[in-house]
């Protein structure tokens, strides 16, 4: 696909505004919230992360609400490389995957051999999924081939592990850039494209996600390959999660409404979703203290 076309910002925002008017009630709300949990990459990416913190998060990932077995476990936990063995051990026997950020996350500004070595090591340590960052410096300088080559080499280094490519859309700024970066990533071998590291000033937004979903759709039309999508950073409320799902539901449809094709990268979203689900079940909101903070 040489000519990928352009994006019209005004109309992307208008479409998102329209889709945000969808009224998601009752059964649809419950089903949507449970689906959101099953699509979550429960994340901790802090310098102060410790084994204790990661263990607690893994427990929550497997059993988000001990009292209600109808609530699914999340899709994966997302951690820094050093925490991969801890998470792997804690999640043994469960369906929850281990995702690790790599490639000099979050800046991506390290020599390529170091990044490739990092990727190989996290996979050896047991990561099922690798969340890499693109080199935004190269992208903004117009060295698109370098960006693509790097992704392709990381993909090879991943072996069987799934590769999510973080575009860091907040730093790319324009929707045309986001669309171009999406295509570069998909063509270079990304299994997923992901908005953000969570470390930039602007992280996932609905309009940027729509731009990426439309790029995924065009790639699918052209090649028949289904690429996954992961908005990450700044998604904190159940209401936001449902808005993202509406976007997926009405842009890519059924095949993407699955943890195999869509993920939320989030650290604090889960408790708000649980709170809403408990509200639907009991008819009353419960205080935050009734949900574990891990």
């Amino acid at each position: 696909m040489k000519d990928i076309g352009t994006v019209d910002q005004v109309n992307i925002e208008a479409r998102v505004a329209m889709l945000c008017k969808r009224s998601i009630k009752n059964q649809a709300k419950i089903a949507g919230l449970k689906m959101a949990i099953s699509m979550m990459d429960l994340t901790t990416l802090e310098g102060k992360d410790s084994a204790g913190k990661v263990l607690a998060m893994c427990n929550k990932a497997m059993h988000p609400l001990e009292s209600d077995p109808s609530i699914p476990s999340v899709a994966a936990v997302c951690v820094y490389p050093n925490m991969v063995p801890v998470a792997k051990k804690a999640l043994k026997g469960s369906s929850v995957k281990v995702a690790s950020v790599a490639t000099a996350f979050p800046s991506g500004l390290a020599p390529l051999p170091i990044k490739l070595d990092e990727v190989k090591r996290v996979v050896e340590m047991g990561a099922d999924e690798v969340d890499m960052v693109i080199n935004r410096g190269d992208f903004l300088a117009g060295r698109y081939d370098d960006v693509a080559n790097e992704i392709a080499q990381v993909k090879t280094a991943c072996g069987n592990a799934h590769l999510k490519v973080i575009l860091e859309t907040g730093e790319l700024e324009t929707f045309d850039n986001v669309r171009l970066a999406s295509f570069i990533a998909m063509q270079a071998g990304a299994d997923f494209i992901k908005t953000s590291t969570g470390k930039a000033a602007v992280n996932a937004t609905l309009p940027v996600t729509l731009v990426m979903l439309e790029a995924i759709r065009d790639y699918y039309y052209a090649t028949g390959k289904r690429i996954g999508m992961k908005p990450a950073g700044g998604i904190r409320t159940a209401k936001q999660a449902l808005q993202y799902l509406v976007l997926v539901n009405e842009t890519l449809g059924d095949a993407w409404l699955s943890p195999d094709m869509f993920r939320f990268g989030a650290s604090t979203l889960l408790n708000d979703v649980l709170m809403q689900l408990e509200k639907q079940r009991t008819g009353a909101y419960q205080a935050g203290d009734y949900f574990t903070k891990d």
């Binding site: 009630k25 009752n26 699918y220 009405e250 059924d254 095949a255 409404l257």
Partner: peptide, 16 residues
């Protein structure tokens, strides 16, 4: 049709 998208089979909005 192989590359046709399918809509509305997985998540239906309740009437509002």
């Amino acid at each position: 049709n192989e590359r046709m998208l399918q809509f509305g089979g997985k998540w239906q909005y309740a009437s509002a």
